[in-house]
Design a protein around this nucleic acid. Structure first.
Lengths: 121, 121
DNA sequence: CGGAATCCCTTCAGATACTG
DNA sequence: CAGTATCTGAAGGGATTCCG
């Protein structure tokens, strides 16, 4: 029983610390969810869809997702330039689990906000 | 189709921003996973199991999880004091989805680290 | 034992200005 | 259009000390 816990104690190899921590930033999950609902989307479309993300953070977020091969970036050498983003197969496989989480978040949102308000610890 | 995206554009009501962002910190998911594998665990046990978390951050993390009613805290008025933590029903329902994510992270860890290394953007 | 309080450093993230 | 570069404030998180 204690053995199951070892993977979380092994700091250097823990999958949560090495993989999931990357999506624990402010924007990655949101970008993945949005790209999961469209075929492709351009940079400024994403910017407008999210509303409250800065240009810089969208760039950083997309580059990180691209590095992990969760999002694919395609540059069309036109004038003006056009760049489109879409999810990769790996990204789609991750999205299945994220949708589970997102659904849970929606279902439990009100109850959680209520608990949060009541809690005066 | 564009309608599906509205919930992500509605900054104030977006379930990702209001609920999931709380678990996007460095430790919450890990604490939940560990508590999900035992019945109860004491403060210092958690500290030792995780290995690289500070006392302060474990306290902060547990309080946040408690406020959202994902973890229950029980104080036994003994000397020396004993405090035990366990997952609530709501915490268990969240854990089902987190296990999906954790499994994905384990399965894809090596491939992702490889992608990350190859990426020189 | 299980914290709380303080200090301090690092990282995150926004604003602004500039570019191919 | 889709970025990059730089600056700066805010937040996250660690180390240390003290307490019931």
């Amino acid at each position: 029983m204690e053995n199951n816990l070892n993977k979380y104690s092994d700091v250097k190899n823990c999958p949560i610390r090495t993989v999931l921590d990357r999506f624990g930033d402010k924007w990655s999950v949101l970008v993945l969810l949005i790209l999961g609902e469209v075929e492709k989307m351009r940079f400024n479309e994403l910017l407008r869809t999210m509303g409250d993300i800065s240009q810089k953070m969208l760039t950083v977020t997309l580059r990180t997702l691209e590095a992990d091969d969760l999002v694919k970036r395609t540059i069309y050498p036109e004038v003006p330039p056009r760049v489109e983003y879409e999810t990769t197969e790996r990204g789609k496989s991750l999205l299945k689990h994220i949708h589970g989480l997102a659904g849970w978040a929606e279902e439990n949102k009100l109850a959680i906000l209520e608990s949060r308000n009541k809690f005066k610890g």
